[in-house]
Amino acid sequence: MTVLGFALRRLATLLPLLLLVSFGFFAMLRLGRGDPALDYLRLAQIPPTDAALALARQELGLDRTILLQFASWLGGAVQGDLGISWFTHRPVTEEIAHYLPATLQLAGTAMLVTILVGVPLGIWAAMNRDRWPDHLTRVMTFLGVSVPNFWLGFLLVLLFAVTLGWLPAIGRDGLSSILLPALATAAMSASVMLRLVRASVLGVLGEAHLRFARARGLPARTLLGRHIVLNAMVPPLTAIGLHLGELMGGAMVVETVFGWPGLGRYALQAIGNRDYPVLQGFVVVMTAVFVLCNLLVDLIYAWLDPRIRLERAA
């Protein structure tokens, strides 16, 4: 099976799922609580008289069945039109396109931190099993998966911005400003990555091909590079897709600590206002980004490792 065939098969299962999810969101908003027309009038600052309500319902298409409403939303969505915000009266697509890059930049940098911290320390811990590096990283990872990310953000600001004055406390201005929020966002994922890498390296260390390589008298450097690291990296890196969801969610919480101008603030505003088109657009876009990133990770692995292609095709 070719990589292209694999990609098409995956897309064929993902698209219906995405459609189902979008409809689920749509139905939940319409049936969730109260009357959308009331929220619409409130945000437009129009007194909710009977006449105004009836007009709003007609204007928003609320008098049609939910399937028809969804169909008309979907018709716009596939052309990149997610509707108009009830609060700002601007296109949702435009506003999300404005805020999304900052969130993706933060989540992406956090992913980089996750890999750059998790992989080398994980190898280090495994090579020094039951010695102090292993114990040290174990304590670190335990704290890492237990610490609230936003609170870690405050602690980092307290240390690096307020006390030491090395890095800015808030804002989005170059490399120095993204370091602290990325660290706070990445703490949990980096810890999980470290443990996965450690376990995977330990697994490879016990394998027969390594004993054979050692018996052939290969130098330690070759052993570590080609035989241990390359083989041990596949399982932890396939889990990258799982980290992505965590990092995207985490980034939105951490954003508020650092005044990072991302989707988190936009979503919070929409939640406070009950701005239906924005909520719908937000959740669908985030889900689509998440699903596509996962697909990309899968494809890279199918390309790198034929076993995955064959296994999933079977």
Binding site: L17, L18, V21, F25, M28, L244, G245, E246, M248, G249, G250, M252, V253, A267, I271, L279, F282, V283, M286, T287, F290, V291
Partner: peptide
């Protein structure tokens, strides 16, 4: 399919 925190926010 949806990241948990995104779903919770929604």
């Amino acid at each position: 399919t949806v990241p948990t925190l995104v779903l919770a926010l929604f």
